[in-house]
C-alpha cells in the first residue's frame, strides 16, 4: 500500500519552488529579449521615414514610452493578470491567439510521445532480450538514423511518400483527423531513437542483477519477470531521459509544425518572427518554456513516485 511519505511531500515542495524560480528567471530573460533588438525597435518596425504620430503610437503599444523600471512593473502585472498584450500584426489579444493555437501543439506533442513509446518499447525490449541479434542491429541503425535525421528532412520525405505518391494522408494543415499522423510521427522519431537505446541499456543492466536470476530460479515466467522486476527498475533512467528529451520535442515543434503547416504554437512563433511581432514572439517563447519547466517538474515527481526508496519515506 503506498502512502505519501513526508519525504515525498518535502521533495515535491522544493521541486515546486525550484520550478517557480525557474519560470521567474525565464520571464526575466524573455523580457530582456526584446531589448536585444539591434537599434531602435520602432525604427526596425516602421522604417526611418515613418510619421512621428505613428512612432509615438507604436512606442506606446510596445510599452517603450516609459522607463525600464516601469516597463518591468507593467510586464509583471500583465503576466500576473495573464494579460500578455496585443499582437502588433493582427491587433488581437495575444492570450486569445495562444489559447487558439496551444491545443494543437499539445495534441501534437502527446501523439508524438505515444508514437515514440510505441516505437521505443518493442525496439528496446527486443534489443535487451536478444543483444547482438539482427533485431538489435536494426534497432541500433534506427536509433542512429532517427537521432541524426532532422524533422525538416524526414517531414518532406514523408509528405512526398505518403501524401503525394500513396495519397494516404493529407499534405498539411489540421483539417482532417488523420492529418496529425505524419507530423506526430516526424516529431516522435528523435525521441524514439534515444528512448529505445536508453531502455535497452537500462534493461540490460537490470537483467544482469542477481535478483533477476533469483526470480527466474523461483520459476517466474519471462513475461512476469519482465513486468514485475525488470521494467519497473529500468523505468527510472528511462523516465529521466524522457523528461529531458521532452524539451527537445517542444523545441522541435517549431520546425515540424512549419513543415506540415500545423496551426500550433510553433507556426505562431515563426509567424511572429516573420512579421517582427515581438510581443507575440515573447509570449510564445514564454509559454513553451514554461510548459517545459512544468513537464520537467512532473517527471521528477513521477520519478519520486516510482522509486520506493523515496516513496516509502523511511
Amino acid at each position: 500500500m503506498w502512502t505519501m511519505g513526508r519525504r515525498v511531500l518535502k521533495a515535491a515542495c522544493s521541486r515546486v519552488l525550484l520550478a517557480v524560480g525557474t519560470v521567474f528567471g525565464i520571464s526575466i530573460l524573455v523580457f530582456f529579449l526584446s531589448h536585444l533588438i539591434p537599434g531602435d525597435p520602432v525604427d526596425v518596425l516602421l522604417g526611418e521615414r515613418a510619421m512621428s504620430t505613428d512612432r509615438v503610437n507604436l512606442e506606446r503599444s510596445l510599452g517603450l514610452d516609459v522607463p525600464l523600471r516601469q516597463q518591468l512593473v507593467r510586464y509583471y502585472s500583465g503576466l500576473l493578470h495573464l494579460d500578455l498584450g496585443v499582437s502588433i500584426q493582427t491587433r488581437q489579444p495575444i492570450r486569445t491567439l495562444l489559447a487558439e493555437r496551444a491545443p494543437y501543439t499539445l495534441a501534437l506533442a502527446v501523439t508524438a510521445l505515444g508514437f515514440a513509446l510505441l516505437l521505443a518499447l518493442p525496439l528496446g525490449l527486443w534489443g535487451a532480450l536478444y543483444p547482438g541479434r539482427a533485431g538489435d542491429t536494426c534497432g541500433l541503425i534506427f536509433a542512429l538514423l532517427g537521432g541524426a535525421t532532422p524533422s525538416f528532412i524526414i517531414g518532406p520525405a514523408l509528405i512526398v511518400i505518403f501524401s503525394v505518391w500513396l495519397g494516404w494522408c493529407p499534405i498539411g494543415g489540421a483539417d482532417a483527423p488523420d492529418s496529425i499522423v505524419l507530423p506526430a510521427f516526424t516529431l516522435s522519431l528523435g525521441l524514439a531513437a534515444i528512448l529505445s537505446r536508453q531502455l535497452r541499456g537500462a534493461l540490460l543492466h537490470v537483467l544482469r542483477e542477481p535478483y533477476m536470476r533469483a526470480a527466474s530460479a523461483r520459476g517466474l515466467r519471462v513475461a512476469a519477470l519482465l513486468r514485475r522486476h525488470a521494467l519497473r527498475n529500468a523505468a527510472i533512467p528511462v523516465l529521466t531521459v524522457l523528461g529531458m528529451q521532452l524539451g527537445a520535442l517542444l523545441g522541435g515543434t517549431v520546425i515540424t509544425e512549419t513543415v506540415f503547416a500545423w496551426p500550433g504554437l510553433g507556426t505562431l512563433t515563426v509567424e511572429a518572427i516573420e512579421h517582427r511581432d515581438y510581443p507575440l514572439l515573447q509570449a510564445c517563447v514564454l509559454l513553451i518554456a514554461t510548459s517545459y519547466v512544468i513537464v520537467n517538474a512532473l517527471t521528477d515527481w513521477l520519478l519520486a513516485c516510482c522509486d520506493p526508496r523515496v516513496r516509502g519515506g523511511q
Binding site: T22, G25, L33, L250, T269
Partner: peptide, 20 residues
C-alpha cells in the same frame, strides 16, 4: 539552470528572430 530550462533550439530561434 536557467539556460537549461529552455528548449535549446527554441531559445536560439527566438534570439535569432529578435536579432534579425
Amino acid at each position: 539552470d536557467l539556460f537549461q530550462a529552455f528548449p535549446g533550439l527554441l531559445l536560439a530561434i527566438a534570439f535569432a528572430g529578435i536579432l534579425g
